[in-house]
Design a protein around this nucleic acid. Sequence first.
RNA 1: CGGGGCGUGGCUCAGCCCGGUUAGAGCGCCUGGUUCGGGACCAGGAGGUCGGCGGUUCAAAUCCGCCCGCCCCGACCA
Length: 568
Amino acid sequence: MRFSTSFFPTLKEIPADATIPSHQLMLRAGLIRPLAAGIYSFLPLGYRAIKKAMTIIREEMDAIGGQEFHLPALNPIEVWEETDRLKAFGDTIFRLQNRPLVLAPTHEEVICFIARNEVRSYKNLPQIWYQIQTKFRNEARPRSGVLRGREFTMKDSYSLDATWEGLDHAYNLHAEAYKKIYSRSGLKFFIVGASSGAMGGTGSQEFMVESVAGEDTCVLCDHCGYAANLEVASSRMPPVSQAEGGKELEEIHTPNIRTIDQLAAFLSVSTERLAKSLVYRHNSKPVLILMAGNDQLNETKLQSALGGTVEPFSPTDLAQFTGADAGSIGPIGLQGFKVFADLRLKGAKNMISGANRNDYHLGNIDIERDVDVEAFIDVRTVNASEPCPDCAASLRIAQAIEVGHIFKLGTKYSDSMGATFLDETGSERPIIMGSYGIGVERIIAAHIEQHHDESGISWDPVLAPFEVHLIVVNTDNPELLGYSDRLYGDLVAAGLEVIYDDRTGVSPGFKFNDADLLGMPLQVIIGGKHFSAGNVELKVRRSGLRRVVAQSTVVGEVKKLLAELAAA
RNA sequence: CGGGGCGUGGCUCAGCCCGGUUAGAGCGCCUGGUUCGGGACCAGGAGGUCGGCGGUUCAAAUCCGCCCGCCCCGACCA
């Protein structure tokens, strides 16, 4: 493409609304333009990158036997009521005002609708169906450019199986395909065990790209490779004080003590001797959660451990129920609460906790002896440098972008929608499903987060909108311009994707900076400096490496360098 | 949805507290000329209902109210 006749609107200044590098660079390099909050137009350059990512995804999905569908974005409300997800999605689902339709935020329902009408027998299974399409979610707060939008492109695939072994197989096929997709996309990624949340099902994993711009927090072990979303992560933290048991409970006056740190200072004991009480409603009934010292409760882990609905207790309800303020709640003598304790408190003795009376605490608590604990559960939030649960090495905590998520759904959707088949014995059984998503824009944004510098984007050849950025330094020199025009034709004829900066009246520095901003992997520079000697300059964007080659060998050298870059 | 910030030519911003010339700057854009290896220079020029509505005032970009939009933090995130 000739720059002079194309629409590549670059920006010299950083748009005020963008705060993360990928968002700033996608705007500055003319990949996207905002239309409204969380809604972006993809411009020619950006769409070329998107199409490259989609091609990689398509190839790998086809390789595991996936069949591509094109599904309706408009769905009748009824199918969403059948699975009860209209309620589950709540305000996140877009609803039309003048028809009983919704804009699909995902497509399990449509897939089940097709399957229940068409899949009759185990002989029709297994199937892998996928789509790469726009999905719509009324995100409460769109953010970070294209990373969380209200309208976005998603590859979703759905596996349909007759057996649980079949589901495992389909799930593993997807995990392997995803590894190839992200590797080919030039992303350094890792896989974490994840919470399946309201999606339901028996297991899920997320594909993560480490980035400070990410919304997810992950716990990583660089020694053995343990990796988990903070929502499910655990560590090998030792239990708290087990010694010095046997003493009588005693009431301790603790005037105006509000926090664990204040209490520890006031009593001159370690925070580990203290048991913190938190109160929640579990399926509407009050529960008290005991945590060791300053350990932070993780609400997602609590939710998974207890099941059902878990919601926080309001401070006013609390005083009413317990007769004490939050700082003085404790597990002993509290009426109407079931008590759960974090695993670290198992066997704990000589502990101090609230006395359910303002300004008083109880000492010498032996958890097993004095507290009626319903169950010991792992609900604490892992902190950096705690020991890895698998190998005890020091854990690291990192922010990450979720670029993919795979779920074993089981029969949740096929049950509620009546998507069944007849097995070998003639009995009717629900189809066993899995679903597997990839955020296409997130691949691009994550790639830019991982591959940029002060000057701009630095694409891997596979995702780059163009492979070669050809620059003619001075268009007023007819000889130079003529040669550049011919070289452009030769490169294109050789099957290369070339962007050719043939603009007149644009200074060399401007062209160089635009080329670095756009970030095509290889720059070919035609300027007087080398031209008069019969040479052409090649510059590798990422490394800055420059190579001067003879005009007669340019096309071959370009291909060779690109091959090297692609292999790197 | 709660908290905070912002809204002035295409972009980045100043002016607003303390109301009062014709609303400014840099960049970009148009015309002519010069220049041509790291965001050039000279000359001339176009472009703004100061987010919207209402109010106060002799007078509002500026003060007050309501609304809209965008960004950030939090809640939320199949």
